[in-house]
Nucleic acid binder design. Structure first.
Length: 275
DNA sequence: CTCCGTGCCTGTGAGC
DNA sequence: TGCTCACAGGCACGGA
């Protein structure tokens, strides 16, 4: 499932590949991802437009197009983009095909059809919830002081619930959340208000650490995630708790636990991450 | 404010 | 071995 590091890889790779290219045609084989725009309108709005930039915020991907248009994408669980030479090789999971000027096509794949597309005019793009909600942890404004501020008035929450709340920090999903809590040696059910100053610092460092390492290792391919060339990431080889139920902790040898916390499957080491 | 349940989907794999 | 069915989870929404 694409979380911040995977979406960042998409943004960086796509920026290099599509910038300056024109969309010659749009073919939708599924239209359920469209939000607030009819299929014909979506096609006609994008056709003829030129990619000017690709950006990311939280788990959202933004294609800046000519004509003051922003195409917003959320990949949700199984969405991803493929970029490869024409002619396009599509399969049953291909939901949209973008014929680009030149020799390459852009393809949107989404097994479970949870992904969403939205269009914004550049002038009111700043009002988009994807741009307003939560703080992106990789933006310069995110520092320890800001992080401490986010904890204020949320003292009764569990850490798991806090980190997954996109209106607080935008970008963490289940994998990087569990890994960050392990790094910080904090139990996922701990309450925000119980943290000491040192623990808050540890959590802050852990969140930034796992995200940066995730990007450096080009994402986590535990199930469907592939980059735009179809290649797997490597962070799955360095997971310390996620999907390691009943396996020994790399630090202490204790058996990794999986239990539902804040409604999510949550993995942790009961010894390293004690209450 | 907190947190649960539901719906949206389909591939996977645990368990019979 | 073959089948069924619960589960996986990001997010929006409704409700306790």
């Amino acid at each position: 499932m694409p979380e911040l590091p995977e979406v960042e890889c998409f943004a960086r790779d796509l920026r290099k590949c599509v910038k300056g290219r024109m969309i010659e045609a749009v073919q939708l084989s599924f239209t359920g991802m469209l939000r607030g725009v009819a299929p014909e309108e979506f096609g006609s709005m994008l056709t003829g437009k030129v990619f000017q930039d690709v950006q990311r915020r939280g788990k959202y991907l933004f294609f800046y197009l000519s004509g003051e248009l922003v195409w917003e994408v959320h990949l949700r669980m199984t969405g991803y983009f493929l970029f490869y030479p024409a002619p396009a090789v599509t399969d049953k999971h291909t939901r949209a095909l973008f014929i680009l000027q030149g020799t390459n096509n852009l393809q949107f794949q989404d097994i479970r059809k949870f992904g969403t597309f939205r269009l914004w005019q550049k002038e009111d793009f700043h009002t988009a919830p994807s741009m307003q909600r939560g703080i992106d942890p990789l933006e310069d404004v995110f520092n320890l002081h800001v992080f401490q501020g986010l904890l204020y008035r949320r003292s009764k929450r569990s850490l798991k619930y806090l980190l997954l709340d996109q209106s607080v920090i935008a970008g963490l999903g289940n994998i990087y959340c569990d890994e960050a809590l392990f790094r910080a040696r904090l139990h996922p059910a701990r309450k925000v208000g119980d943290l000491t100053k040192d623990e808050i610092k540890r959590l802050f460092d852990a969140v930034l650490g796992v995200l940066q390492e995730g990007i450096r290792l080009r994402g986590t391919s535990v199930s469907d995630y592939r980059d735009i060339w179809g290649k797997k990431g490597h962070f799955q080889d360095f997971l310390r708790v996620y999907r390691r139920k009943n396996k020994p902790c790399f630090l202490c040898g204790e058996t990794i636990t999986r239990e539902v916390i804040a409604g999510r499957g949550t993995h942790y080491c009961p010894r390293c991450q004690n209450h």
